Simulated scan of single mutants.
Amino acid sequence: MDELSWNDGTWLNEPPAAARDGADLLMTAARGSDFWRTTSYGYDRDSGHALLAPLGPDAAAEVTFRADFTEQFDQAGLLLRLDERTWIKAGVEYADGLFQAGAVVTHDRSDWSTFPVPEWAGRAVTIRASRTGDAVTVRARAGDEPWRMLRVAPFPPGVPAAAGPYCCAPERDGLTVRFTRLAIGPPDESLH
């Protein structure tokens, strides 16, 4: 994987504050920011903050961040985006009193899958999205633990997209997330 500079990305919905702390990026989310389309909640939101770099077909992106969340729906991770109707966000979200690893896959409408990871609280988490053919395989881990598969999802093949760190704070002001790494490289060699 080739590490990118934060200067290699372009903002989608620039956050109220973004600053460098050494090599790290501190991104502060606006209250009400989110990525979601329609399903169950009945609204469309495309207001989350993301710093996106080009990601071609048959490539992978990784983002590492510190999971320090305290409020309902605080979230951060990796956004893979084709357009406002076709994207995947994967990461950690504080939901219903627990840290949850999960992914939202959106093709006109969003879905959401999660599993609890309370042991990831306050730790460095890495999310990896690997594009091959018509699919994206999303994996996650805390520290240097083994990768856990979060999702295999369809994604349009052969088209350029963008990927990078994202954060959202649907319910509060003041969420600041420390991102420590953005890297792009070859896709995973196999699903398993």
Rank of each mutant, 00 (worst) to 15 (best):
V136K: 00
I127Y: 07
S130K: 02
A95H: 13
P54K: 05
D173K: 03
A23R: 15
G97K: 12
F69M: 14
V63G: 00
F115P: 03
D21P: 01
D34Y: 11
R151H: 00
P170M: 09
F69E: 10
A121E: 13
L182P: 01
R20W: 00
L191N: 09
Q75R: 09
Y41E: 07
A163T: 05
G42D: 04
L52K: 02
D188L: 15
P165R: 02
D2V: 15
G42E: 05
S110I: 12
G185E: 12
D134C: 09
Y43V: 13
V177Q: 00
T38D: 07
V105Q: 08
D134R: 13
L52I: 04
P187A: 11
Q72K: 06
W36L: 13
T10Q: 15
K89S: 05
L51H: 06
H107F: 11
G91Y: 08
D24P: 01
A59L: 07
F69P: 05
L79T: 00
P116T: 15
R148C: 08
A76W: 05
D44L: 13
L26N: 08
T64H: 03
L26S: 08
T176E: 06
G97Y: 08
V117E: 12
W11T: 10
G97A: 10
Q75S: 10
V159N: 10
L182M: 15
D2P: 15
W36M: 10
R109I: 06
A59V: 03
G97V: 08
T106G: 12
A18I: 02
S110D: 11
A30Y: 12
S33N: 02
A59T: 08
A140M: 09
A18D: 06
A90L: 09
V92R: 01
W36P: 14
F73M: 13
Q72W: 03
D74C: 05
P15K: 10
P156L: 07
A162C: 04
V105K: 00
A183Q: 11
A162S: 13
R141N: 00
P157L: 14
A19H: 04
Y43P: 06
W147M: 03
R141T: 04
A18G: 00
D134F: 04
P157R: 06
S113M: 08
T39Q: 11
G91Q: 07
D144I: 01
A59Y: 09
R139P: 03
G22A: 11
G158Y: 08
A129K: 09
P165F: 03
G56S: 14
C168V: 05
I88S: 02
Q100I: 14
T10I: 06
L150T: 00
V92L: 11
A23K: 10
T176L: 02
R45E: 12
T64I: 07
S40K: 15
A129L: 12
D83Q: 09
P187L: 02
W11L: 03
T126R: 05
F73W: 15
L98Y: 01
T28F: 06
R148D: 09
V104C: 07
A59W: 02
E71S: 15
